[in-house]
């Protein structure tokens, strides 16, 4: 049982759910009759795509993408004297004054002044950035869709798709 979870379920479960949510959303957009329901389906479709992107950027045992690297010269001294991270933090706070002195010494020296971050231990920030803007733009476009839905309700007195289509087709036959 444990083997089943680890080998079959865990590596792809997020991607299965993204496909299932996408199917639910797509089915709602096509088959639901009410326009508000269609918009809820469209929003679910959107979150499915976001789930896909964010799932790709996950790394096992990784931190969130906020990281302030400790300067090397201080951190080495801290490790030598068996000090814990607290002294490393205290050293990190001293850096601005240190940079003032350094800035005249040249850029190349300053760029090497920080410890090397292991990229495998920080979550991939790129999908987060893309999806963050997509969410905000998504709610703005959802507002446009809801405005159009209100316009349709004012014109036809209903939000059901088949009734709206009946009115449109009936009008054509009268002409």
């Amino acid at each position: 049982m444990e083997q089943l979870v680890e080998q079959i379920l865990e590596p792809h479960f997020n991607f299965w759910i993204y496909v299932i949510l996408m199917m639910i959303g797509l089915w709602a957009v096509i088959a639901k009759n009410n326009l508000i329901k269609k918009l809820i389906g469209l929003s679910i479709f959107q979150t499915a795509i976001i789930l896909f992107y964010v799932s790709l950027g996950v790394k096992e045992d990784a931190n969130i993408p906020i990281k302030k690297p400790t300067p090397i010269e201080y951190s080495e001294r801290a490790y030598d004297s068996e000090a814990d991270t607290r002294s490393a933090y205290a050293a990190a706070e001293k850096t601005p004054a240190d940079e003032n002195a350094d800035s005249k010494a040249g850029d190349s020296q300053k760029k090497k002044a920080y410890e090397k971050i292991n990229p495998d231990k920080i979550a991939n920030p790129l999908p987060h950035v893309l999806m963050l803007t997509a969410i905000v733009v998504g709610v703005a476009t959802l507002g446009v869709a809801l405005a159009i839905a209100q316009m349709i309700f004012k014109e036809f007195g209903t939000l059901e798709e088949d009734e709206v289509l009946k009115v449109i087709k009936g009008g054509e036959q009268d002409d």
């Binding site: 950027g57 996950v58 993408p65 987060h128 905000v136 998504g138 709610v139």
Partner: peptide, 13 residues
């Protein structure tokens, strides 16, 4: 999943 900024935006939006 570690996407704190996205979580914040989603909670608000």
């Amino acid at each position: 999943m570690g996407a704190v900024d996205v979580a914040f935006t989603e909670a608000a939006v």
